[in-house]
């Protein structure tokens, strides 16, 4: 459904282009929930925006991106007409972004429905809007309310309803659970999972929250410094990490019944344009050896997953 081949994405600035994402090979099958996991600033939103066609005009690309059998990025050319907002939609990281504070939820839903299904009668538009609201488990009373009259969790649901209005095939949800309390996080995640099953959607779920990822995903993609460092077809790799980065990331999670101090990952994630040579993780990696500093490791198949780490190189040869 979504396939990228050596995709690179960068942003133009005064002195050139800062490449944020490089050599991304991603494959997301139809009807699968894929989680993009990584620290803040590693390029998750950038990847999500590329898939949903929402990169700003000053973004630069190379490689290819195919969404729903349409080549949408080919080299430095982008063509999202007919795909963006129709086949693939994005739920923005910032919930304030999706909803116009000066229009009622009902009005915003109806406009979207009318645009995508011209010729529907006003009555049908309204009932479709109410249906969408009930799909995201909001009451009919929300139809006549303004965004500021909704709670944070309700706003997320309303934003999801709005994204679903064009009946898309792919949804990119950019941290849909951030800034929600623990209960609402799972409520929103399970709502997305339910919708994904019922509507047979392909869901790209972006998060830095490993526990949510475990809860919702089929496929895991761990991103570090704009690269895939570990990819597995099941949430199992979140139990037994291969890449040192994922290992440290999981150690940094609080565990139940554990009195140990939380570990943290030493150092800072690198900034785009200032990525180190060799393995991008080597300044922070506890297992670093000479080769890591010189050469960037390729993606290596290791058992049930793909890992970008020299430690798995020897065993992959045998």
């Amino acid at each position: 459904m979504v396939r990228s081949e050596e995709l690179g994405i960068g942003y133009e600035h005064d002195e050139g282009v800062a490449w944020v994402v490089e050599d991304l090979d991603l494959e997301v099958e139809h009807g699968v929930v894929t989680c993009l996991i990584g620290e803040s600033g590693c390029g998750k939103s950038t990847i999500g925006n590329a898939i949903s066609g929402l990169l700003p005009p000053y973004a630069r690309t190379y490689g290819r991106l195919v969404v729903a059998d349409r080549v949408v990025i080919d080299g430095d050319k982008m063509n999202f007409t007919g795909v963006r907002g129709k086949v693939v939609v994005r739920i923005a990281q910032d919930p304030a972004s999706a909803l116009n504070p000066y229009l009622t939820i009902g009005e915003q839903l109806s406009t979207a429905i009318r645009t995508h299904f011209p010729g529907l009668s006003e009555h049908d538009v309204r009932s479709k809007a109410l249906e969408l609201l009930s799909d995201v488990m909001l009451g009919e009373d929300v139809y006549d309310r303004y965004p500021h009259q909704l709670s944070g969790g309700m706003k997320r649901r309303a934003a999801i309803a709005l994204a679903l209005a064009p009946e898309p095939e792919v949804i990119v949800a950019d941290e849909p659970t951030s800034a929600l309390d623990a209960y609402l996080k799972y409520a929103v995640a399970s709502l997305l999972k339910k919708l994904q099953r019922e509507w047979e959607l392909t869901l790209v779920f972006i998060t830095h929250d490993v526990s949510i990822a475990r809860y919702i995903c089929d496929q895991v993609v761990v991103v570090y410094a704009g690269r895939i460092v570990e990819e597995g077809a099941s949430p199992r790799c979140l139990e037994s990490p291969s890449h040192p980065y994922l290992e440290l990331l999981l150690k940094a999670l609080p565990k139940r019944f554990s009195k140990d101090r939380l570990a943290d990952i030493p150092g800072m994630p690198p900034r785009p344009g200032m990525y180190p040579t060799g393995c991008k993780f080597h300044p922070r990696c506890p297992y670093v050896f000479e080769r890591c500093r010189q050469e960037e490791p390729p993606i290596i198949k290791a058992g049930d997953r793909l890992v970008r780490c020299w430690r798995y190189y020897e065993q992959s040869l045998t």
């Binding site: 929402l54 907002g85 129709k86 304030a96 972004s97 999706a98 995508h116």
Partner: peptide, 21 residues
Amino acid sequence: LDFVRIPLYYGLSRAYVVVKH
């Protein structure tokens, strides 16, 4: 913001987006 960008991508006119959003 999405509520301005997305309708433009949908093909709604600039005038509509200015008046409504």
